[in-house]
Design a protein around this nucleic acid. Structure first.
Lengths: 225, 225
DNA sequence: CTAATCGGTTAACACACGTTAACACTGGTT
DNA sequence: AACCAGTGTTAACGTGTGTTAACCGATTAG
């Protein structure tokens, strides 16, 4: 069995080394990066299963890094390491979709417990996650949308957009929220692009007439069925 | 659109605030209480649809609070937040009957998923109940108004205005109340705008002559049939 | 009776969103 | 290198929604 890859971004070498070694004794493979930029490169090379990110780092801080990686993969578990117990930091970490956070100083036991929790949790989700909307079945990880035995492959963007619509079924899904989450910003062009994808999804969902993507002018979209 | 009320009892202010804000971005209304006693009072004032209770709290712990509220309402869904050190078997007794528990630390995504699950299960969700007014059927979430098999799609504003009119059928619906609720203020321009929408609704409701939107000068409107 | 106020109605308007197609970029194949 | 298919972005144009304006009649206070 191959070891589980963990990306660790920590600028303080001594602390980084300690964490790395501790985790390696628990049979994880650890890629230690000394700043956010290197971490992003390493992420793309190594496709780790989990991220441990220091919030305060030179070049690129942990939150910014997390936002960027979230546009590529919004299910990968992230643990933030925050220096101060500042509430504001923590709040930001959650709104990015970060899964967990640890206040420094923390014990190794604590970190390991949380890593194991997150890994278990995502495994469970991966095995059990086909979503249902009307007569459609949607396999998010595979990006396959099925109705009456007929399947169509969705693109990455289509799948993620649909995923969030389904997760917020019958509620208004905020435009700028989803733009920031999937596009990384909510400027004019991204908004235009999103409109195009809404059109595409409407077409792909039209085989069940009870399903509609309703626009709420100025706020966002509501998937109803 | 009335938001779903959630009562959140959490004594640690930082965490409480994070959860509250996260839930509010998902369009829930959250009442944050810092201990069990305040939570009980708030429960009686606000009649929330769902409870999220920290188990360890000063004044009154989550389990005791839950027992008391259960005597008043034995179907309301409750989610317990438990610290990781707490023993599993205590918790397991409460997993029956629409309840759930989350071990700290947990991710916001997870909490939101469970909230939606419980709301779906207990059918509190404000979904496809179709309202009836005269010979018309009105599907509020889909914003569709139907008579004699003919359907017309309403806009967001039209739908919400009609919703409140129907909810207050045969009663006077206060102008400034509805203006504040839908427009966010009750200034001159919003009032003018509302007049326009009343006109539009009158047109769309004229296929059943028994239905009328009557103006009560200086007070508001009354939908009668 | 007259003026002031409130609401009714229609139309003009600004802008958010819808739709289609052209375009640019990527990665794979020959 | 040249080509291709797939994906997402940009552009151009069209449509729909909500706001504002203008004009009107109805009601009521003075």
């Amino acid at each position: 069995m191959s070891k589980i890859n963990i990306l660790l971004a920590e600028d303080e070498p001594a602390l980084g080394q300690i964490i790395k070694e501790s985790l390696e004794t628990r049979d994880f493979k650890v890629h230690l990066c000394e700043n956010g930029e290197i971490a992003l490169e390493t992420y793309q090379k190594e496709s780790p299963e989990l991220l441990v990110l220091d919030v305060m780092m030179p070049k690129k801080d942990g939150f910014t890094l997390a936002k960027e990686i979230r546009t590529l993969d919004d299910s990968i578990p992230i643990i933030f390491l925050t220096a101060k117990s500042q509430t504001q930091d923590v709040v930001e970490g959650f709104t990015i979709g970060g899964n967990d956070y640890l206040k420094k100083p923390f014990s190794m036991e604590e970190l390991i417990v949380r890593i194991n929790n997150l890994l278990n949790r995502t495994k469970i989700q991966k095995t059990s996650d086909t979503l249902t909307i009307g007569n459609y079945k949607f396999d998010f990880p595979k990006q396959v949308l099925t109705i009456d035995g007929e399947s169509q492959q969705l693109t990455h963007r289509e799948a993620h957009l649909l995923f969030h619509l389904i997760k917020n079924k019958n509620q208004v899904l905020d435009r700028s929220l989803i733009l920031n989450k999937l596009w990384g910003n909510d400027d004019f062009f991204s908004a235009r692009s999103m409109d195009v994808f809404i059109t595409k999804l409407r077409k792909k969902l039209q085989k069940d007439e009870s399903i509609q993507i309703i626009n709420v002018r100025g706020f966002g979209y509501k998937l109803v069925n």
